[in-house]
Simulated scan of single mutants.
Amino acid sequence: MSPTTPSFESRLLTTASSVEALLDELLSSGGQTGEITRPQRLLDAMRHGALNGGKRIRPFLVVESTALFGGNAKAALRVGCALECLHSYSLVHDDLPAMDDDDLRRGKPTVHIAYDEATAILAGDSLLTYAFDVIAAPETALSDRARVELVLALARAAGIGGMAGGQALDLAAEKQAPDEAGIVLLQSMKTGALLRFACEAGAIISEAPGEDRDRLRRFGEVIGRAFQLADDLLDLTSDAATLGKAAGKDAARGKGTLVALKGQEWAEAELDRLVAEAESLIGPYGEKAETLIEAARFIANRKH
C-alpha cells in the first residue's frame, strides 16, 4: 500500500486549520438572528468538545469530494464544520458515564470531566442542533434543494438508522457479543454512516448526477469500514499516550471486533483490499480523484 505524500499531509493540515478557524467563529459568543443569548458556560463546554484539534478527516472528505466535482468550496467548508459539530456531539455523549465512561479525549479531559455531566449533555444537544442550523443558514450558499438534501442525508446518517442506532447496538454488544455480520452492521452505522455522508455530501453540494452520488456514497462506505478496522487495530496495538484516549477498552468490555474475531493478519490484508476497492471506485475520475485516494490510504495506515 502506497504511503501518503507530503502534499496530501499539507492539504489535510490546511483544511484542518480552516475548519478550526470557522468552528471558532461559529462557536463565538456573538449570537445569531433568532437566538436570545448564548450562556457562557454552555458555550465553553461546546467549544471544549469541538475545538480540540484532531485530523478533521470528516470535513476534509466533504471538502475534497466537493472539489472532485468543482462545487462551492466555501459552502463545503461550512457543511464540513456542521458535520464536525455533529461528530463532536457524538463524542461528548459517548464519553459520558452512562455510555463509554471515558475521562480522556485527544489527550484532554472529556467534557463531563472538565465541566459536569449535565453540562456535557446540553453541550452535545446544542452541537447536534447547531449542525443543522449551519447547513440551513443562508450563509451556506447553496440551492434550497441541495440544503434540504444535505439536511435529510445527515439526519439519516446520524439518527436511529445510522450513528445513534449504531451506538445502541454497541451498548447491546457489551451484553451479548455479535457475530461477524452483526459487527459489520454495528460498525457501518456507528462509525461508517458519518464517513459515508462526508463523501456523498460533495456530490450533493455540487448537484452531481445520481450515478456520481451513488459512487461517492459507496466510496464512503468502503473507507468507513477501513477507518473502523484501523481503529480496532490501534485499540489492540497502541497505548493511551499514542491514542490520546484509553486503549484496549473494547477488549476489556468484551465487545466483539473483526480484529478479535479474525486476527491481526486478516485485518491488515482486509485493509489493503478495502483501499484497493476505494481506488477502483473513484479511479475513473482520473487525477482529480488522487487526493481522495490518498485519503483512503491515510485512513487505513493511520497510527493514532
Rank of each mutant, 00 (worst) to 15 (best):
A260Q: 12
A155L: 12
N72C: 05
D44P: 11
L243M: 13
T242D: 10
R273N: 10
A276S: 15
S88H: 02
A267C: 10
R253Q: 13
I183D: 04
G165N: 02
C85W: 04
M46C: 15
D170E: 08
R145M: 03
G202A: 09
R58Q: 06
A230P: 10
R297E: 02
E207G: 01
T15P: 00
K175M: 04
S7P: 01
L12M: 14
L216S: 04
E20F: 04
M163Y: 11
S90D: 07
A240I: 03
Q228T: 14
I183L: 13
A295K: 04
G248P: 14
P97D: 06
R225K: 08
L142F: 04
Y115G: 01
V134N: 05
A177G: 03
L127M: 12
T140Y: 03
V111T: 15
L243K: 10
L236Q: 15
L185F: 00
A67H: 06
K262A: 04
R106N: 05
K74G: 15
G107R: 03
R156Q: 14
A137Q: 11
F197H: 10
M189E: 00
G54Q: 03
G31R: 14
F197Y: 14
A172M: 13
S10L: 10
A172R: 07
R145I: 08
S90P: 03
L23P: 05
A193R: 02
R253L: 12
Q264H: 07
G34M: 12
A136S: 15
S29L: 12
L12Q: 11
F8I: 05
T191V: 13
V79S: 05
L26V: 08
K262M: 14
K249C: 14
A181C: 03
G244R: 08
F8N: 13
P284K: 02
A75S: 13
A252D: 09
L86D: 00
G159C: 09
A158T: 06
R215H: 02
S65Q: 01
E270T: 12
L26T: 03
A300G: 11
V275M: 02
D179M: 06
G71K: 06
E287V: 05
H112T: 11
A146C: 03
A123E: 08
K303P: 01
H93R: 05
T15Q: 06
D101T: 00
R106Q: 02
R78D: 06
A45T: 14
K245T: 09
A153V: 01
P138N: 07
L104Y: 14
R297Q: 07
W266N: 06
V148W: 13
C85E: 01
A114H: 12
E294C: 06
Q40F: 06
E20K: 02
D125K: 00
D179L: 02
P97W: 11
L274R: 09
A177S: 15
L91D: 09
A114T: 12
L216M: 13
T14S: 13
N301Y: 04
L51I: 15
V148R: 12
A226V: 07
A260T: 03
R213H: 01
A153I: 00
E294K: 04
Q228A: 08
G159D: 13
H112W: 15
